[in-house]
């Protein structure tokens, strides 16, 4: 087991290095002057330009720049925004909001996704199954931002069941609607994945053997079908946590949630490249760690993996 963990951990390091290098390279080493980009193309005083070059280490060779960038990520000393705030402070305020949002979305898709998926899978071909399948296709087909607007408009404005935008401090209650929107597309995938998995396992030989032992229907379903079917679902959910944090940009924009996505989007609009690179680096780190957790979870759920 220890071997397994350390092996997976070692495999993630090149992924993290590669992804951050990719981002850094794209932003700082592609044609076009990053400093000009920083100012949004407006002319600036040579002294300011020099200072900026020094601040972002652009006077150094590329590999040293990248090394310093990695160091800043690991030490969480992410530099300053244009308005002079510490990026780590700004991120520190935005991050808990997005984390809350992502966790709520994850809980939403996990609970409803598994419940609907299991029922649909157990009643394959029945009305419930067909309805859920069609509904999940529609959810996947409609872009998140359209769903967001529509739900905001109907649930938030017309019906007044929830607040259309999120208030100061982003309390849990205000986040329900954005979380639902954020998790909706993944919900559709979770339902379909659970359903497929259940159908596959329902016909497995060991399920028939379990039935032949004289176990009750309930026990066959919960102990033998469910547990085995949930392995791929749990894997998907774990990997999805990372994408939810990244994908929150759209949802946070619609509902005006003061989270990482909003921060990132504003930084992009304002051309604050260093902030963008810093935030994306942190997101990649989270994504990679989430994947590690998934691997461990997977090994815990499926004993066959542990010894590979």
């Amino acid at each position: 087991m220890f071997m397994f963990i350390s092996k997976r951990f070692l495999q993630l390091i090149p992924v993290f290095l590669g992804a951050t290098l990719l981002v850094y390279f794209l932003v700082f080493a592609t044609p076009g002057d990053p400093i000009a980009a920083l100012s949004g193309g407006k002319p600036m005083a040579p002294a300011v330009e020099e200072a900026l070059r020094a601040q972002y280490n652009l006077d150094q060779p590329f590999w040293i720049q990248y090394g310093l960038y990695l160091k800043s990520l690991v030490t969480f000393d992410l530099g300053q925004t244009f308005s002079g705030q510490e990026v780590s402070d700004v991120l520190g305020r935005a991050f808990p909001v997005t984390a809350r949002l992502a966790i709520m979305a994850l809980a939403f898709e996990a609970v409803f996704g598994v419940i609907f998926g299991v029922i649909a899978g157990m009643r394959k071909g029945k009305l419930f199954d067909s309805t859920v399948l069609v509904a999940s296709l529609i959810v996947i087909a409609v872009p998140t931002f359209v769903l967001g607007f529509v739900l905001q408009f109907f649930v938030g404005v017309k019906l007044d069941w929830a607040k259309p935008t999120v208030g100061v401090g982003a309390p849990w209650g205000d986040l329900i609607l954005p979380a639902a929107v954020l998790g909706l597309v993944s919900l559709a995938y979770v339902i379909r994945l659970t359903r497929t998995s259940i159908i596959e396992n329902k016909n497995a030989d060991y399920v028939r053997t379990a039935t032949a032992k004289g176990l009750s229907r309930r026990r066959v379903v919960s102990v033998h079908i469910l547990r085995n079917s949930l392995i791929p679902v749990v894997t998907f959910l774990g990997a999805d946590l990372g994408s939810l944090m990244g994908g929150a940009i759209v949802t946070e924009g619609i509902f005006n949630v003061p989270g990482v996505g909003n921060l990132l989007f504003k930084a992009i609009k304002a051309g604050e490249t260093p902030t963008v690179v810093a935030v994306v680096g942190v997101l990649v780190l989270i994504f990679v760690l989430a994947n590690l957790v998934v691997d461990l979870l997977y090994a815990w759920l499926d004993p066959r993996i542990r010894y590979v």
Partner: peptide, 27 residues
């Protein structure tokens, strides 16, 4: 496989946002 993993670590929208705001693409 590693190369694929690296691209996977960046969600589509996030990666696209970064690329699309590069000067070469933005202009």
């Amino acid at each position: 496989a590693r190369l694929g993993d690296i691209f996977f670590a960046l969600p589509l929208i996030l990666g696209a946002i970064i690329v699309m705001q590069l000067p070469a693409f933005r202009d």
